[in-house]
C-alpha cells in the first residue's frame, strides 16, 4: 500500500547546453511535508518542472507513486502550483480557473458533474475567496491570485501537492492561513513538496528540508524545530538542519 509519492534518483538536467541540476536524489514519502530551499537560480523551479515532466532530463530516474514518469498517467494525483501565474485572458474568472483543475479526470465533450461543481465551490471557500469567485482573476491582488492557484491545484483532491513558492507576495496573515489549510490536508494524508524562501509559517509542519546550491543537493535533513514543540523558544527561528538523512539509498 505504501507507494512513495516522489523518488528522484541521480537526476541530471541541462537547459540550453548548461547543466542546471547535477546528480540530484531525494524522496518525498506519503506522511511528509518537504521544503525545497536554495538561493535564486539554484535550480528549485527546474527540479520541480523536471519532476512533473515539464522540462526533459538528460539522465536519472523519476518515479511518481512508484510509476516511472514516462509511464505515469494518473495526473489527478498531483496538484501543481506554479511559481508564476501565466493566465493571459483578462476576463477569466476565479471559478473558471479553479474548474480547469478538474480536467485531469474529465473526458473531452463531457460536462462537469454537479458533484464536481460543488467541489469547485468548496475549494474556493477553503482558500477564502467565495466572495471573489466570479471576479476576473487579473483583478485580484497578488496574494489572492496565489490562493486561486492553490485552489486550482487542490480541486482534484490530489494525494501529492507540489508548490513552487506559493507565498511569494502573500502577507503574513494569509500565509498562516494557507499553511493551516495545507496542514489540515496533510493530516488527511496528502504529501507535500514545497519550494520556499521563508520557512517561517511552514516550520511547524515541515518534516524535512532539502537545500539546493548550484543544482546540487547540499543538505537534506530533519529540521531542528520539528518535534520540539515543548521548548519555549521564540517563533520564526531560522531553519537549521541537525540530522542529515538520505533514507532512500
Amino acid at each position: 500500500m505504501s507507494v512513495i509519492p516522489v523518488v528522484v534518483d541521480d537526476l541530471n538536467v541541462s537547459l540550453g547546453g548548461l547543466p542546471i541540476l547535477r546528480d540530484v536524489s531525494f524522496a518525498v514519502e506519503q506522511h511528509e511535508v518537504v521544503a525545497l530551499l536554495g538561493g535564486n537560480g539554484s535550480g528549485k523551479t527546474t527540479l520541480v518542472k523536471a519532476l512533473l515532466g515539464l522540462v526533459p532530463h538528460q539522465s536519472g530516474e523519476i518515479a511518481i507513486f512508484g510509476t516511472p514518469l514516462a509511464q505515469f498517467h494518473a495526473w489527478s494525483q498531483i496538484g501543481y502550483v506554479p511559481q508564476r501565474a501565466s493566465v493571459s485572458l483578462h476576463t477569466t474568472t476565479v471559478r473558471e480557473l479553479v474548474t480547469s483543475g478538474t480536467l485531469s479526470t474529465r473526458r473531452p465533450f463531457t460536462r462537469l458533474s454537479r458533484a464536481g461543481k460543488a467541489r469547485v465551490s468548496e475549494v474556493i471557500e477553503r482558500v477564502g475567496l467565495t466572495k471573489k469567485a466570479d471576479d476576473a482573476f487579473v483583478h485580484l491582488s497578488g496574494g489572492q491570485q496565489q490562493r486561486v492557484l492553490i485552489a486550482r491545484a487542490l480541486v482534484s483532491a490530489p494525494p501529492l501537492l507540489v508548490m513552487d513558492e506559493p507565498f511569494a507576495g502573500v502577507d503574513l496573515a494569509t500565509q498562516q492561513r494557507l499553511a493551516d489549510l495545507v496542514r489540515s490536508l496533510h493530516d488527511d494524508g496528502m504529501a507535500v513538496l514545497v519550494v520556499l524562501h521563508e520557512t517561517e509559517v511552514f516550520e511547524p509542519l515541515l518534516s524535512r528540508a532539502i537545500v539546493l546550491r548550484e543544482g546540487r543537493v547540499v543538505k537534506d535533513g530533519v529540521l531542528e524545530t520539528h518535534d520540539h514543540g515543548h521548548e519555549a523558544e521564540p517563533p520564526g527561528g531560522t531553519v537549521r538542519i541537525i540530522e542529515e538523512v538520505r533514507p532512500w539509498r
Partner: peptide
C-alpha cells in the same frame, strides 16, 4: 465549443495543462 474547457486550459496556462495530463 465542445472542447472549450480543454482548449481554455491549454491557452490559459500551458504548464498546468500538461500536469493535468492534457
Amino acid at each position: 465549443v465542445g472542447l472549450a474547457p480543454q482548449m481554455f486550459a491549454v491557452c490559459a496556462d500551458e504548464d498546468f495543462a500538461r500536469v493535468l495530463g492534457l
